[in-house]
Design a protein around this nucleic acid. Structure first.
Lengths: 186, 186
DNA sequence: GTTGCCATGTAAGGTGTTACATGATTTA
DNA sequence: TAAATCATGTAACACCTTACATGGCAAC
């Protein structure tokens, strides 16, 4: 589990409540988690038990009280050790490819519709991401290198979807010419 | 769950035993599952209960007996309906990006080592995939379109890793020049 | 003679999701 | 008046993984 370390990361930037972390993680696409309560609140308890964070309760008159978590020196050490550890290979979960693999029984029109639906999904996502990258979401900015890296991450994420869209568009074209040449033969 | 449909897919190509399916799914990278026994044997029971496959026991003298599963018409209908359904967006799980996000406390050499380690992982994966694509793994080949699609899938999968490698290499370069220009300023 | 392949399956646990529950305050 | 935001947490469950269990046969 590296959600623990992702959370430690955000806490190494600024103290956060569970609620803050949920929003932060949910909003950051590169942190591929949904940011759901169950995991976040459980993980905060774990981090606290392991002495990687301290907890402070902040009473508020108008809103419910917040539990503010702050990273400890042990937490920073753990985070750095993890950051330097051997990286894993990325995992692409592309359900569309599984779908595409088993389109043997679809005719040309059904195939067209499928590709078009995927292309449209991607187009919408790309538009949304482009806007988000343009606006620049909340990111740590403690050094030139850090903001450079966060910008690189955002544009790289966008590029993944853009490349997928380019691929599907070229596939659409190639399938059309293929279908046509088969029609010519008959 | 679309593992069910992925398995139906392989069964729509050829009858398989659970053991065959495990190998098939485990070997096919685009079918992003590990191909573990637990899920496969449970899912086969489900598919059978739902009438999407039939089961036949094949006794063998030298080896343990095999349970051969064959897709039914209902299974084919289910598979086609699923293949035409609204595709999901891909999900990129890139733990390295989470790691990279929190490298604030690493110095230039530690950063270099991290990027180099990731690049090396990717380089190995790309080499392996290139060879596999070159050899051409076992894939259905029932029509020109189907083999075209499976070839597209394989090269696209490879391209994902190649692009990741290109990106990390460019990042290595940009971080070097950035570090140098900062040194020049001091 | 230990490892690996064939072939079935079970156990245990980690990871992640949606939905529910509470309760006050602000916004539409 | 209905919904969204703030803020905490729980329940139930889907999904997926590693490891274990059995047992014969073949290969090195």
């Amino acid at each position: 589990m590296s959600l623990k370390h992702a959370m430690l990361g955000f806490l190494s930037w600024q103290p956060h409540s569970g609620y803050d972390l949920k929003k932060q993680i949910g909003a950051s696409y590169t942190h591929h988690w949904s940011g759901n309560n169950n995991q976040i609140y459980r993980t905060l308890v774990e981090l606290h038990n392991e002495g990687l964070v301290t907890r402070e309760i902040e009473h508020q008159d108008d809103s419910p009280s917040r539990k503010i978590y702050t990273i400890t020196d042990a937490g920073r050490a753990e985070l750095k050790a993890w950051a330097m550890s051997q990286p894993d290979l990325p995992e692409w979960k592309i359900p569309f490819l599984v779908q595409l693999a088993w389109t043997h029984d679809l005719n040309a029109e059904e195939m067209d519709a499928l590709l078009a639906a995927y292309a449209e999904q991607l187009r919408m996502e790309v538009l949304m991401l482009r806007e988000q990258v343009h606006r620049g979401t909340s990111a740590p900015d403690r050094s030139a290198r850090e903001s450079f890296i966060w910008h690189q991450m955002a544009t790289h994420w966008l590029a993944l979807y853009e490349n997928e869209l380019v691929w599907i568009r070229s596939l659409q074209g190639e399938l059309h010419t293929q279908t046509k040449s088969e029609e010519d033969e008959t």
